[in-house]
């Protein structure tokens, strides 16, 4: 009897893993290559302010309300959970500090990042992927325009500019939301809350927060645009590209967050 090793589960399993690894490495390679190409394109910059503003409005109009809601709600929930316990154990005066550190250092940026990925990142990826599978990207190339320069530049610049604003606004609302929640659930006076906010925060926190959100904005838009550009095979390819953009962006901002936390606060 002859054994066809291709039919064994072990073989299929290993093949699947090999396929995933290959896909991972090629996506990573593409992101690096297109990232460098984007940087090269900044030299002969041709994006008009109008293009950038158009992309910025994507952040401001279509995603800001939801981003703010998500960050604010998260802060309210955390504040509700901890305020009562802390007041009970005499730590009421530190709730503001706790919420400020939590929101400015971590939650504001990371929750905004998640919200932006699910709204902006996915729409960038599907937009560019659709252009790819309908040969619009090929059409750009044939007209001797570099698609990376033309498509990526306004989007990545808009993301890098807008993300800090979104995060700062969201964090501020988050801290205020925390105050309201603490006040309602455990009758903590607003003055006690906001006095302690300043214990926790330093200028460094603000700098790091801005720097981190700039990195998030860059990473999310770059990855989403790349995943769109490497799409193939029709409508299914657009779906795959969008999923890939979301997953890769999620992972990337968590990694960036870890790097920042290690570098600045540890």
């Amino acid at each position: 009897m002859k054994i066809y090793y291709q039919n064994t589960y072990t073989y299929k399993f290993l093949k699947l893993i090999a396929h995933q690894v290959k896909d991972f490495l090629s996506t990573l390679g593409d992101i690096i290559i297109y990232g460098l190409e984007f940087l090269k394109g900044l030299k002969h910059f041709n994006t008009t302010p109008k293009d950038i503003i158009e992309q910025c409005s994507r952040f401001a109009v279509s995603s800001l309300p939801i981003t703010l809601t998500i960050v604010c709600m998260t802060s309210i929930i955390i504040s509700m959970q901890v305020a009562e316990e802390m007041v009970k154990h005499g730590g009421g005066n530190f709730i503001g500090m706790l919420m400020a550190i939590l929101t400015v250092r971590e939650e504001g940026a990371i929750m905004s990042g998640f919200a932006i990925i699910s709204m902006i990142g996915s729409s960038l990826a599907s937009e560019i992927a659709t252009m790819k599978v309908t040969e619009q990207i090929d059409a750009i190339s044939v007209l001797k325009v570099n698609p990376v320069h033309y498509l990526f530049t306004p989007r990545i610049i808009a993301g890098t500019i807008m993300m800090p604003f979104v995060v700062i606004l969201a964090s501020t609302l988050g801290i205020i939301g925390g105050a309201i929640a603490a006040n309602i659930t455990s009758e903590l006076p607003y003055k006690a809350y906001f006095d302690s906010v300043w214990f926790g925060l330093s200028l460094k926190d603000l700098y790091v927060c801005i720097l981190k959100s700039i990195s998030f904005g860059f990473a999310i838009t770059l990855i989403s645009c790349c995943c769109g550009l490497i799409a193939k095979d029709g409508a299914k390819g657009v779906g795959i590209a969008t999923t890939k953009a979301v997953v890769w962006s999620f992972v990337s901002i968590v990694i960036i967050d870890l790097i920042f936390a290690t570098a600045f606060f540890y």
Partner: peptide, 24 residues
């Protein structure tokens, strides 16, 4: 292209003048 591949976010004017507006 087989399916025209016009840029669907641009109007006809910008589609036709694309190379003249964007090429280095």
């Amino acid at each position: 292209f087989q399916y025209s591949a016009l840029f669907d976010s641009l109007n006809v004017f910008d589609n036709i003048s694309f190379a003249l507006q964007e090429r280095k």
